[in-house]
Design a protein around this nucleic acid. Structure first.
Lengths: 208, 208
DNA sequence: GTCTATAATGAGATAGAC
DNA sequence: GTCTATCTCATTATAGAC
């Protein structure tokens, strides 16, 4: 779509709009976002939004498609790799938390929008191209169970536990900070610590 | 507000409206909900909504206040009780999952709205009355660590892990089902199983 | 491509009859 | 208390000048 010539600073209006739309949509959701707000955030005019993207819906689709690819695209490479199970868990947690730290509103955004249109959204998430390769991971877990290296656990449950512990703190951050009475600074440190703590926790939980 | 005389079936318009507002707001959020939709869901007229509750905002506050009390009110009784740590974990997980199973959209609703207005919302959540009594739980964890009954772990991290595993599956249900290719029926069974699986998982992870 | 001005629609809120 | 009809304003979208 654009010749990627070193990608200087501002890539023109189109990219500024997408960047702005990302920020606004991710924080407020499709229904809560205002086209004018996005225009202001991008430092341009409302009419330009419609010039580049025909409608709010279209602009939303761009942001959502990108979001979904980022969140799901990261599942495959690691969980489908050839690494050992424990190594895989360590790599996955570390990499997933690192990524979400850079896009903290992404998970909440996706989850909220999916709840508003479960059928279409899920179909859209999975149809396009690469359906996450969880089977390899699941088979590996079952194999380790048979070899008595880990306790008996449904692979799906293990996966849910791992994903929950990685993602939930971001989705629930303000609430958790409020309930536990924790500062921004301390919470960030705790998130950072979780990159190592979660794998330890999981491996402790399942190893024999 | 009403004499609770056996609470027959339909409790009049006011209750029907609240019930409808709950369903719509919880699924679509404040911004995504439509007054007309709520009216239809309640089987009454738009104007009646404004007769009973002056505005959309007021109606929203009713639903949100109720929601917050239900979610946070359940933290104290169990985590602040006199039970042993392991027992407490078992009780909490079982009870929290049971409750959310009956109100599956509640967590996502609260988390989304908090993200839209972090300051006010969190203040509102914690001000009113009972701030969750997590200190007792945290001290208990530290005591068990000193007694070498469990491994060293930051009590906050343990709490986050526990809450994540309980709540996240509901927030992310459609996505998880899509990614793991699991039917409604099977997912419900998995949730039910988690009441026992999560405590086992946690206790395995922390016990010496 | 980018703007200003304006049209078109959507949705919350009110008036007034019954 | 409950309804129909209507008002008002916010927001998406377009027209048209530059």
């Amino acid at each position: 779509m654009k010749l990627n010539k070193k990608v200087k600073e501002m890539e023109g209006a189109e990219q500024k709009i997408i960047a702005a739309a990302r920020r606004i949509f991710q924080r407020k959701g499709m229904a809560g976002a205002r086209m004018e707000e996005i225009a202001n955030e991008a430092g341009i005019n409302k009419a330009l939004l419609h010039y580049y993207f025909r409608s709010k819906e279209k602009l939303f689709q761009v942001v959502m498609t990108e979001a979904k690819m980022q969140m799901l695209g990261r599942l495959h490479p690691i969980l489908g790799s050839e690494a050992s199970l424990f190594e895989k868990i360590e790599k996955f947690v570390e990499s997933y938390i690192s990524f979400i730290s850079l896009n903290p509103f992404l998970p909440g955004f996706i989850l909220h929008e999916i709840n508003r249109h479960p059928e279409e959204m899920v179909k859209m998430m999975l149809s396009n191209d690469k359906r996450p390769n969880l089977n390899k991971f699941f088979l590996q877990v079952e194999s380790e169970i048979r070899k008595k290296n880990i306790i008996a656990i449904q692979p799906e449950q293990l996966f849910i536990n791992m994903l929950s512990m990685c993602v939930f703190p971001f989705v629930a951050r303000p609430l958790l900070q409020g309930v536990m009475n924790v500062s921004d600074k301390k919470f960030s440190l705790m998130i950072e610590a979780r990159k190592k703590e979660i794998p330890k926790f999981i491996i402790n939980a399942i190893k024999r």
